[in-house]
Simulated assay, not measured.
Amino acid sequence: MCQLFIGADPALWETRLRSVRMHGYATSVRLENIYWRLLGEIAGRDRLSVAELLARLYEELLEAQGEVDNFASFLRVCCVRYLMLQMAGDIPADRMQPIGGLDAPSILARERRRLAGPDDQHREASKAAQGGIAV
């Protein structure tokens, strides 16, 4: 099993520092090459450059959360979620289909249901049966 991972091209986990402009400031982000590749794929789907995608993610995260603690970790999670959502069928595998036009609230609701533990699923079912709003 490990050979599948160990035998990968070492260039995939080498890090690269890229300069980007976010929130009016020039800054740098260091990520492994595999994440830069995925961010390029994500950006390309909506005809954005990677720098434009990062700036947009940063601004929207700042607006939603009020602060951005670890942007590099956030980007890694975005990449993994992108792949997970593709595997679940929520994001089409067709790279020509933009992500921006997808129904984000519905996708997030399905993801929450998939990630919920048995206790959470039972609680949601009970709420629904009692006329409450299930997430």
Rank of each mutant, 00 (worst) to 15 (best):
V80T: 04
Q97D: 07
Q97R: 13
Q97Y: 03
F74P: 10
A104V: 02
Q65M: 05
M87Q: 13
P105L: 12
A72Q: 07
S106T: 12
D90Q: 12
R95E: 06
L108D: 12
A104K: 01
G100P: 02
G100M: 11
E67I: 08
Y82T: 14
A104P: 00
F71T: 03
Q65W: 01
S106H: 00
A88G: 09
D69V: 14
N70S: 08
V80E: 04
A109L: 04
A88V: 04
V80G: 09
M96K: 09
S106C: 07
P105D: 05
Q86F: 00
R76Q: 06
N70L: 06
C78E: 12
F71V: 03
A93K: 05
C78Q: 11
P105N: 00
G101L: 04
A93D: 00
D90N: 02
V68N: 09
A72C: 04
D94W: 11
V77D: 12
D90M: 02
L83F: 13
R76H: 04
D69W: 07
I91Y: 07
F71M: 01
M96R: 14
G66M: 02
A109Y: 05
V68I: 05
L108P: 03
A109S: 08
V77T: 15
E67N: 10
P98H: 05
N70H: 10
D103L: 07
E67D: 15
R81P: 14
I107F: 00
A88T: 10
V77I: 15
L85V: 08
I99H: 04
